[in-house]
């Protein structure tokens, strides 16, 4: 039983509950995101900003698991669960790969971009996107399992 299913009662009755276990590889991740997007767009046709944010967050969270938790082995399951209310899209993932270093999501702040093109970063955007687009996130390690929850408002945070 997903802890997520018990969590967001305060936000109103769930309008969509998706749960699936997939292999943690880039193609399966993409296919699952497309399926979740199809359902979200059907349920919330007018809330495109929150859905765009959710698509980005899902991609970063699931690809992080494939790349870091399972070290790009393309071997390992991840369970993804998405629960939506009128106000909030909640995503929970569970995997059995490596724990996050320091048992905490990396604290990444995007510094002001360097002036020289040669110094521009080619990575490290993933956690910046997750943090920027969500209002709440939580990680815990239980036994051999990583559990990560993140909540994205259907009406987006103000981005300045």
């Amino acid at each position: 039983m997903s802890s997520l299913a018990r969590l967001p009662r305060a936000f109103g009755a769930p309008r969509l509950h998706y749960e699936e276990t997939i292999n943690a590889d880039p193609i399966s991740v993409r296919d699952t995101i497309l399926e979740i997007m199809r359902r979200l767009q059907h349920e919330f046709p007018s809330q495109s900003e929150g859905i765009i944010s959710t698509e980005i967050v899902l991609a970063e969270v699931l690809n992080n698991i494939a790349e870091h938790s399972y070290e790009d082995s393309n071997l390992g399951d991840v369970s993804v669960s998405v629960l939506c209310t009128d106000d909030m899209i909640s995503v929970e993932t569970r995997d059995h790969g490596l724990p996050m270093p320091g048992l905490t999501p990396p604290a990444t702040e995007l510094e002001s971009l360097p002036v020289g093109v040669e110094d521009l970063p080619e990575g490290g955007f993933g956690w910046f996107f997750i943090r920027s687009l969500s209002t709440h996130m939580e990680y815990r390690r239980t036994g051999s399992q990583n559990i990560f929850c993140v909540q994205i408002p259907t009406i987006p945070k103000i981005v300045t």
């Binding site: 991609a59 970063e60 690809n63 093109v117 040669e118 521009l120 970063p121 080619e122 990575g123 993933g126």
Partner: peptide
């Protein structure tokens, strides 16, 4: 229709490959 951090990193790599 969609780009993630890997895609953005690839765009930056493409820009760098143009040598200025």
């Amino acid at each position: 229709t969609f780009m993630d951090s890997s895609g953005l990193g690839a765009m930056v790599a493409a820009l760098k490959s143009l040598d200025g």
